[in-house]
Design a protein around this nucleic acid. Structure first.
Lengths: 231, 231
DNA sequence: GTCTATATGGGGATAGAC
DNA sequence: GTCTATCCCCATATAGAC
């Protein structure tokens, strides 16, 4: 039943044990730095089982990611539809759109107890470690959901050009991943002013920051004269 | 004289050859995934030279980063001081502050011809690969420059609380790194609407997005009622 | 400072018995 | 499906000759 992902790893079958342990170790140490031997030892299974069940180390990674990403994107879609249903005219506000986009991302570990956001750090890390791999992942898992959200943003901010929407969407996505990857830095760089473990606060600050960015003029070249300083 | 970093690697001494090649390979493939053998083979030097000159693989990494970061931060400080001097009352606008902060970051490779931003991808990657290592790097190289810029932001936006400034500074930093790490994604995710190789456009869009975030209310909890949707 | 040679330990993957 | 045993590759680091 998989009630508590952190306990009773004994009661899982070999395949599940490997997935469970691999996810944790990939997140903690990175993909390259984690060996199959390390995974199988911690999981208490045989080394050869990985290749039997997943074909290769990369096959294992693909499965680990898929198990998290698919429910996350389903959740995003449901939240967006719910907000659209609750709206007056079918146009969802930017805040609601990004709440639907961000919340499942930060809850991706729940209810598995991934309160440290290890999985999210892994996702960000993989995206910089293996760009080719991520491109495939994008085509398979993120293309559709992105089109859905880009369309919703276009309805919420109809004055934005397609180019502007894509720039800003890219920034929002980069910020979401970056702020999670870099989250531990906030601990020692804010001199105690901010608590990086306050996920709810993080989400709210992020929504505010992102929506402000989407509402900005969108014409920086004409609105703002750059100094043209040479470094 | 080091006129062109990409040519005449033959004319460099062993230490420089190693630094040159290591920087490129760390950036292209990541730290863990790059072997000393690979570096020394491409550089055309002996394997043992790395340990002789840098003590260890991590010592080599430290030196590679230092060679880029120190000039970058000097450049940031100079740009900020120049903008302060040019201002009427010593208060620099947010746009100028972030231009001074961002431009040396994106020009970090120049005039070395790092037009692909490989070094920046490496920096972001290392920060997720080796958090402990980055903490040391932060203390050594980034603490001072951050305090300088946080102070300038506090003067430009005096109504922001310390907590808000640190959140937003963290976001801006995460976005800067994230947008560089994820830059290649923009190629295939924007359907051709945006050109990720247009660094000048990237800088201008970033400044606009970040400054809008800094000018947003700063009190999301009271200004915006969250839906409280459960995923 | 630079080389060869090697110590020492790990890596992913697989063949074949059970 | 799971195991043992092993192939073959690569890693970092160092000792010691030149």
């Amino acid at each position: 039943m998989n009630i508590d992902r952190n306990s009773a790893i004994v009661n899982m079958n070999t395949r599940e044990k490997i997935l469970e342990t691999a996810e944790r170790l990939f997140a903690e140490r990175g993909f390259e730095a984690t060996s199959l031997r390390h995974i199988t030892t911690e999981a208490g299974v045989n080394l050869a089982a990985v290749n039997y069940h997943f074909g290769s180390k990369e096959g294992l990674l693909r499965e680990v990611l898929k198990n998290r990403i698919v429910p996350m994107n389903e959740s995003r879609q449901i939240l967006l539809e719910k907000s659209r249903f609750q709206s007056q005219d079918g146009v969802v506000s930017l805040e609601r759109i990004y709440e639907a986009f961000l919340r499942p991302f930060f809850n991706i570990g729940a209810p598995g107890g991934d309160s440290n956001g290890l999985f999210l750090r892994m996702l960000g890390r993989i995206s910089s470690e293996k760009p080719g791999f991520m491109k495939g992942l994008y085509q398979e898992h993120f293309k559709e959901i992105q089109e859905l959200f880009v369309a919703a943003i276009g309805e919420a901010q109809p004055e934005l050009s397609r180019e502007e929407i894509h720039w800003k969407f890219h920034f929002a996505l980069s910020l979401m991943l970056g702020s999670m990857i870099q989250r531990q830095r906030l601990k020692f760089s804010s001199n105690g002013y901010c608590d990086p473990d306050d996920i709810e606060g993080l989400i709210q600050h992020l929504i505010e920051f992102i929506c402000a960015g989407f509402r900005s003029a969108g014409q920086p070249k004409s609105n703002f004269k750059f100094a043209g300083i040479q470094p």
